[in-house]
Design a protein around this nucleic acid. Structure first.
Lengths: 189, 189
DNA sequence: GAATTACCAAACAAAATGTTTTCTATCATA
DNA sequence: TATGATAGAAAACATTTTGTTTGGTAATTC
């Protein structure tokens, strides 16, 4: 990718994040972003068609890092390091914590809706294999419940309870939701 | 309240709901609402300062009905009808089901964020007294978890799983989250 | 019946959107 | 290092949306 493109794209992302700390998503105009990023009007539209597309691109960008390959792979071989499910959740939380300043404003604001939708898409893929099977409650409900709960846990954590460590938080989650997850996956080795 | 005011207010609400079935909240303009409701421009602004205020007003309106007084009262005397906590949840679900056509578009769309925020405000008040006390997990987390999970349960239900009855759905919820709720409140009498 | 109030229509300024054009600076590469 | 392709800047533009103001009409309240 052209170095100029990358520079501009980053300037836009950076401006976007900075502005989201002060203003709400809906009150944020393309003009604001253009001014803050200090780029030409036509340049912005060359990169993103709308403000929504920008948000979408940023979500993809961030989650590409947060959900690294080894987290998304379904099964680990016996001779590789065994990760309990909770460890993988903790891992995600650590990644999110690293990007915290970028993410916090997005998660809590009103664009949280879009952000959460993306987040949950990844979580669905990841959680799908780890539901316990014996239950009168429909599987589709339990999956939605497990995913939504974790997403909301993250929102809660980033919003105002950052005092807890990633491992503590994943522990809270497992304590409350663990009963609908596959037991093997929630136990530490 | 002036009959004309009520009429206009209703026309705006109705137009708003109707439009939300076709378009997203952010792509919806005040002008659209004005046209659909067939009212004067200045009339709209006499009622609501912004589109957001309209949404807020509608949330208040709907939840005023859904969370009726007897649901919100904290304790029931022994000689009145005893409601288990699940019964009260079922009751809320029934109310939501009645307003379904109005609510569905709001819950699932992007303005769901705002709607959910309001919904959860009421739920916080209601759930606060019904958490079990014995747990290593912080109370603040358990409360947020219980509330968020129920709100997400409702979203899930209205979105595409309306085939389940209110009582079934509250049952699913209690099955998954009941362990952090006060036992007495979850048992039917 | 009189005063108040809600509504409407129309016009308005201001701001935001999205596109187009022309020109310049930077890049990839041969 | 010369060259064609690409990215960006600046400015102008039509269009849309917003939010306010005006003056006049119809419904209501008392």
């Amino acid at each position: 990718m052209d170095r100029r493109q990358k520079k501009t794209r980053n300037a836009i992302f950076k401006a976007f994040v900075k502005l989201l700390e002060k203003k709400t998503y809906s009150s944020l105009t393309v003009q604001d972003i253009i001014d803050e990023a200090d780029i030409g009007r036509s340049t912005f539209y060359a990169h993103f068609e709308t403000k929504d597309e920008l948000l979408k691109a940023m979500c993809t960008d961030i989650f590409g890092h947060v959900f690294s390959e080894d987290i998304m792979t379904e099964e680990h071989h016996d001779f590789s390091v065994r990760h309990g499910f909770q460890d993988r959740l903790t891992h995600i939380l650590c990644h999110l914590q690293e990007n915290q300043q970028s993410i916090k404003g997005i998660f809590s604001g009103e664009c949280g809706e879009i952000f959460m939708r993306y987040f949950k898409e990844y979580l669905f893929l990841m959680f799908d294999r780890h539901l316990s099977e014996d239950s009168e409650v429909p599987r589709e409900y339990r999956l939605d419940h497990a995913v939504s709960s974790f997403a909301e846990t993250v929102r809660w954590w980033l919003k105002e309870h950052s005092k807890y460590t990633p491992d503590e938080v994943s522990g809270f989650y497992i304590s409350c939701v663990g009963n609908i997850l596959d037991e093997e996956m929630t136990k530490h080795e």
